[in-house]
Amino acid sequence: MDPMIFVQYSPILIRGFGLTILAWLLGTVFGMALGLVIALVQRYAPKPVTWVIQAYIEIVRGTPFLVQLFVLYYGGPMVGLRLDPLPAGIVGLTIYGSPYFAEIFRSGFRAVPHGQIEAARAIGMAEPAIVRRILLPLGLVSALPALVNFSIILTKETVILSIITVPELMYQVQRMSTETFRFLEGNFVLALFFWGLVEVISRFGRRIETRITRHLIERP
C-alpha cells in the first residue's frame, strides 16, 4: 500500500464520501417517509387502493436497484422526467427503499396490541388522533431496530449511484484506481469509510432505542 496516494486523493475521496452520506441520508429520510405513508394507506384505504399499492411494492421489491436507477435516469427523459445524477440517485434510493420501509412500519403497527387501540376507540377517540397519539409512537418503537437495520443496508446501495455518474465515494475510488493502477488502496478506502458510517448509524440507533424504550420495559 502506498500512503501517498491517500494524501494525494484525500480531497476528492472526502468530497465523495460527503456525497455518499448526503445521498444516503436524503434517500433514507424520503424513503422512510414514503414507506410510512404507504403503510398507513395500506392500513386504512379501501381494498382496490391497497391492491394498486401492493403491486407497486411487488414491482419495486422484485427488481434490482441497478435496473430501477437505469430506468429512472436513462428512461426518465423519454417521458419528460429529466433529472441530474444526484437528484436521480436520491429519488432512486427513495423509491427503492420505500416498500421495505413500508413493510417495516406495517409490522411495527401490527405489534401494537389491539386492545390499546380499542381502549382509545372506547373513550370515543377519532381515528386520526388514535394514529397520531397511539399507533405511531408505539409502532415506531417496535419498528426502530428494523428501520436502523435497513438504513444500514441502504448505505451500501449508494455505490450503485456511481453508474449514473454521481461523484460519490465509489465513483471517486474508481477514478483513483484507474488513474494510479492501485486497486488494493481503493478497496481499503471503501471498506474503511463504510465501516465507519455503519458503526455511527448503529450506535446512534441503539442510543435512540434505549431512550424511547425506557418507559416500556417492565420494571414493577
Binding site: 381502549a119 372506547a122 409512537p137
Partner: peptide, 26 residues
C-alpha cells in the same frame, strides 16, 4: 366507559397522561 381484562393502558404515557388523553383529544 370500558375497562378491559388486560388493562390496555398506553405504555408510553404516564398514569396522568393516560387519564388526561381522552379529556384532551375527545
Amino acid at each position: 366507559g370500558m375497562v378491559f381484562q388486560q388493562f390496555n393502558l398506553w405504555p408510553h404515557m404516564t398514569a396522568l397522561e393516560n387519564v388526561a388523553e381522552g379529556l384532551r383529544r375527545v
